[in-house]
Design a protein around this nucleic acid. Structure first.
Lengths: 340, 340
DNA sequence: TTGAAAGCGTTACCAT
DNA sequence: ATGGTAACGCTTTCAA
């Protein structure tokens, strides 16, 4: 029984100097070997000794020291805001991260809740990222963008429903969603269309543009749009259903499938027939919509594949200084089932 | 019309030396002023000059240089794995992040997909985090833990259904969920209980322990447990429902509410009455369970509040070297509605 | 083929 | 009260 069972040496962290000492070479040689520097030829025995010494000490290079010396990093900063508003976002962000890592960037998510736009931008700038991709749920002002650029960020992106002056924009135009839903309803003869507006603040960022898109589509025809505030709970839905007939609506775009399910249940419990008296359309095209009766019509959102996007980031990092670019990522299509 | 409209100076990034030059003081004074160093008194006019110079240049300190000099950082690394398995996790991670920021830690999420356990640990170690909290969906081996500790990490945690040797463990014991569901069903007289096993690999980490918990609870009584592989799509659910009566089951724990909804729909479409012929229990206690007919019984999972957890991380960072600690975070309770 | 040394931006110690 | 200087860990140029 050893007294020190695998105690991972609380001692100092090994540096390249320690590796050099143990291998009997200089720090420069260690660097050459471990970075596979092709510009200089090191004898094979030396290489082996260095490698063995590094392994024995458990040496891992210090990223901060390295990028300090190099004068730049390959970190892409992805600030995370309040809460993941849309489920679609997660998938997208994970894929984008993978795409960027394939290009040898280090993607780092950094939570920035409770900071105002300026403080947040300064906090990000301290990390000296080479690029920043800020979702719409985090604040980003033109001044914040300026701070980031001065701190060496080659490219700053916003990712969300709307662009911000001075940054490249990856647009997920939510107006398309509302427009798509309303056009679908109008094609099916509906003219008095409610639009559910979730009262959760985190969703406002999406709800407002969806309403705007709905209004735009309606004004192209002769339909009327009626915003309907709603909390995501049964009481709120029941209250809305109770005064439904006073609203004189023949259709509703329910913001998303979850709200549609909530509202559809309340309408049915109040004796309002779907789709006979009122058509219901959700969004997200979740599996659960197919399980409801009537099956829920929905708006399917598809995002472009992300590898081209990662390439875009890479290109703008390497040749910055261009005009802000704008890219639309979202395609919305109506999926007709039984509820409309 | 100016020719250079707000062009954010593509020049070099301003350093504290630039601020010192502009303010006509030394770099040390700049550091004292900007860090509000109380150990040294600087005249108010000097302070003002320094502050103004910093603002004018848009100076932001360089975090890497700072932590290099300090010899340590306050970064807590949160590797992100495959995919957010449980919705509960997100909320939890966001709260934990906020709690740690309150203690002045910088929380950084770092995607580590496609790396094996050793490479991932090395990549994390390069960042010299003071603590690492690894969700169960990312690989973490005892060797990886050793690498991290040798690189200066004061505390390494696993967060998930099971502990890993050598790291502190924040346990979310999924066996409780399965056990809770099965006990609930047994109390209501059911004895032949199916347990849905989602075939998505990302969910296996949760599904296996839930099954184990179910088995354990069943063996305490006289119930039989039958694992039921299921994909999250209608075809798979319909196929399972079609052979349902051959299984001879009187109840099913459907892994979670979404799978419960899927299966319940399929059972009803196949003419199997719920709960008369077969009881159904989900998990997560989602809103949608209350909207189904019959209303879905579920297992509610509650996590401990996170501030004590953030304090725990802080304590273990400050006084490391203790034995690995183990903390159970999850409490599961059955919620009886109509489907059981 | 290898080694010595400079320098990246910051802060803390020690003089002035 | 303020300024000079060394040091953190690493890479790279230059010299041997």
């Amino acid at each position: 029984m050893s007294q020190l069972p695998e105690q991972p040496t609380e001692g100092p962290v090994p540096t390249s100097a320690d590796v050099a000492r143990l291998a009997g070479v200089s720090r420069a040689t260690v660097s050459y070997v471990l970075n596979n520097n092709a510009a200089v030829r090191i004898s094979d025995p030396t290489r082996r000794r260095v490698r063995e010494a590094a392994t024995e000490l458990g040496y891992v290079p210090h990223a901060a020291a390295r990028s300090l010396r190099a004068g730049h990093s390959r970190m892409v900063l992805l600030p995370t805001g309040n809460f993941p508003a849309a489920p679609l976002h997660h998938h997208f962000l994970h894929e984008l991260e993978a795409g960027l890592r394939r290009l040898d960037y280090t993607v780092v998510q950094y939570g920035s809740l409770g900071l105002d736009a300026e403080d947040a931008a300064r906090a990000w700038a301290e990390l000296r990222p080479v690029a920043v991709i800020a979702p719409g749920s985090v604040p980003l002002t033109p001044q914040g963008i300026a701070v980031l650029r001065r701190s060496g960020a080659k490219a700053v992106f916003t990712l969300g429903p709307e662009p911000v002056a001075g940054a490249h924009a990856l647009i997920m135009d939510q107006r398309q969603v509302g427009g798509c839903a309303v056009r679908h309803l109008m094609e099916r003869g509906r003219r008095r269309i409610g639009v559910v507006m979730p009262e959760e603040p985190a969703l406002a960022l999406f709800a407002e543009p969806r309403l705007a898109g709905a209004r735009q589509a309606a004004s192209a025809g002769t339909a009327r749009i009626e915003p309907l505030p709603l909390h995501h709970d049964e009481e709120s839905a029941a209250a809305l259903a109770a005064r439904w007939r006073t609203l004189g609506l023949d259709a509703v775009f329910a913001y998303d499938d979850l709200h549609a399910m909530l509202l559809m249940r309340a309408l049915q419990d109040a004796g309002i027939e779907v789709p006979g008296e009122t058509a219901v359309v959700g969004a997200d095209d979740l599996m659960l919509g197919r399980l409801l009766r009537p099956r829920l019509s929905s708006v399917r959102m598809e995002l472009d594949t992300v590898q081209p996007l990662a390439d875009l980031v890479d290109r703008l990092v390497r040749r910055p200084g261009k005009e802000p670019e704008r890219h639309d990522l979202l395609r919305a299509t109506a999926v007709h089932r039984e509820s409309s």
